[in-house]
Design a protein around this nucleic acid. Structure first.
Length: 490
RNA sequence: CGGGGUGUAGCGUAGCCCGGUCAUCGCGUCUGCUUUGGGAGCAGAAGGUCGCAAGUUCGAAUCUUGCCACCCCGACCA
């Protein structure tokens, strides 16, 4: 293994792939397009899950679980939904294997063909709404506010670890409401949950926006999204929240009796974020030395590297730091004392930098004499000598400071990479440089598609803070009422 | 799914064009000693169905065909 990573400027995608591998986040599996999430990577995902799950509970949602398999006929009940997903569905056709009569191992038993084929869920709207039909009779049964943590399969042609894999982990919220207003409010609320999570936990600023009809979820009346900007200037959709209108209620005949006794179709929402967030987290902050993790999601927040000769010194260091370790742990700070004797300090320093541990404490005999330690922070790669007196408070403040600094750095990067462009010439030049392009658009999908065809850029979103502003479309020259955000995207 | 590339020890590689002591080197691993404040040094050792399967040949890492996986570029997508 060579010591250093490929650099971001040399080859961004190679840097990303190598980083994922070397930091022990995940690896490719023997199954095409499917990844193995390794313990260190999964630990980050678990922290994400915990934070999100708490936020879902806070907003009144409860978890449930629906089947992995969906009867093929369900998928076709909602016309645009099936159209959106049909091309990437894995299909179960048989339920049994048998020994090959020619001795070539096991083969599919042709006798065991399913009457109705099953789809491996690409998303669960259909199977869930099929249940909701049985759960809803009266307005008293509403709202239903359910989330599930699950895996889904979308048979992607071209995969990239975390960013686009054939199987991925996610959560999908599915809610049902008595009124359109309530469902619309739910859609907006959950988008805000995602935005807060991205900003406060992942330290990743996001643009809250609305998808154009072209980019909308298959089966939704409206799709809200959060969009983040990666360091290479490409945008990444980090989460979506859909207002489903009555589309699935009608497809699955989910009706309720309102207070005046009228039968009405219910209104739905769905919203999700996936392990793709892992890719976003990596690409938003990390540098040529390795991962840079925000303290709130780092599996190890503080690592202590003892520098010693002989067991006696090691024990002396450990005894001296034990009260601090205990205090940190008792306040929920994850701390690792690395007493592994087979690696030298210099090696450990590089390793923990690669893994993005926010704070590293180095401590040797010399420090103990002076009642001090060396504290290094991953985000700025600066070191400071700190007295052991009051170090607990110092570390808590430092973790907060790192969290804030990473966010501010990403925010500054995004601000410097949003460009207002007004001419087609400016647009085509800037899109090659990357970043978000804020430009007038005439509102037609023909223009949107033409721009995509010519530049590979798509409308990432119509920002929710969209300002009415008369202008002319950057491509067609037709009148426009405001600016939308374009970018090349993952 | 189309076009291009790659696959040799845990990792990275040489060898492939021109079949025959060619399985090379580095990192890592193991053992021992010395080391330990930015990826340690010396000495010794282990480790390979050359991606998988057929085929050509007296002989295949090397040539042919098929398959699998990964990477890059396109179409599709969270």
């Amino acid at each position: 293994m060579s010591k250093s990573l490929p650099t971001r400027s040399e080859n961004y995608s190679e840097w990303y792939n190598e980083l994922v591998k070397r930091a022990n986040l995940a690896e490719n599996s023997a199954v095409r397009g499917c990844m193995v999430i390794k313990p260190y990577g999964y630990a980050i995902w678990e922290k994400m899950q915990r934070a999100l799950d708490d936020m879902f509970k806070e907003t009144g949602h409860t978890n449930a679980y629906f089947p992995l398999f969906i009867p093929k006929s369900f998928l076709s009940k909602e016309a645009s939904h099936v159209e959106g997903f049909a091309k990437e569905c894995a299909v179960i056709t048989h339920y049994r294997l048998k020994n090959d009569p020619d001795g070539a191992g096991v083969v599919v038993d042709p006798e065991a063909k399913l009457e109705e084929e099953l789809i491996v869920r690409p998303t669960s709207e259909t199977v869930i709404w099929n249940s909701y039909k049985n759960w809803v009779q009266s307005h008293r049964d509403l709202p239903i506010l359910i989330n599930q943590w699950a895996n889904v399969v979308r048979w992607e042609m071209r995969t990239r670890i975390f960013l686009r894999t054939a199987e991925f982990l996610w959560q999908e919220g599915h809610t049902a409401h008595a009124t359109s207003e309530e469902a619309v409010a739910e859609t907006a609320q959950m988008l805000e949950v995602y935005a807060k999570f991205a900003e406060e936990w992942m330290a990743m600023p996001v643009v809250r926006g609305r998808k154009t009809p072209n980019e909308r979820f298959a089966g939704a009346d409206d799709t809200l999204c959060i969009e983040a900007l990666m360091q290479d200037g490409k945008a990444l959709q980090a989460g979506t929240s859909h207002f489903l209108g009555q589309n699935f209620a009608k497809a699955f005949d989910v009706k309720f009796q309102d207070k005046s006794g009228n039968l009405e179709y219910v209104w739905g929402t769905s919203w999700g974020v996936s392990t793709r967030l892992m890719g976003a987290l990596i690409m938003a902050h990390s540098d040529d030395q390795g991962l840079v993790l925000p303290p709130r999601l780092a599996p190890i927040q503080v690592v202590i590297v003892p520098i010693y000769k002989g067991e006696e010194q090691l024990n002396a260091i450990y005894d001296r730091l034990l009260p601090l370790i205990k205090e940190l742990k008792s306040h929920g700070v994850s701390v690792k004392f690395d007493d592994d004797d087979s690696a030298r300090p210099g090696w450990k320093f590089a390793e923990y930098e690669l893994k993005g541990v926010p704070v590293r404490i180095a401590v040797g005999a010399r420090d103990l004499e002076n009642n001090q330690v060396e504290v290094a922070r991953r985000d700025t790669k600066t070191k400071e000598t700190v007295s052991l007196d009051g170090i607990y408070d110092y570390l808590l403040a430092l973790l907060d400071d790192i969290q804030a600094n990473i966010y501010n750095k990403a925010l500054k990067f995004r601000q410097e990479n949003i460009f207002e462009v007004n001419t087609w010439e400016e647009f085509t030049r800037q899109i090659e440089e990357g970043g978000f392009l804020s430009a007038h658009w005439d509102g037609t999908s023909e223009t949107e598609e033409k721009i995509k065809e010519l530049t590979k850029a798509t409308i990432r979103c119509i920002p929710l803070d969209f300002k009415e502003e008369a202008g002319v479309c950057v491509y067609s020259g037709r009148p426009s009422s405001g600016r939308v955000l374009f970018a090349k995207a993952y």
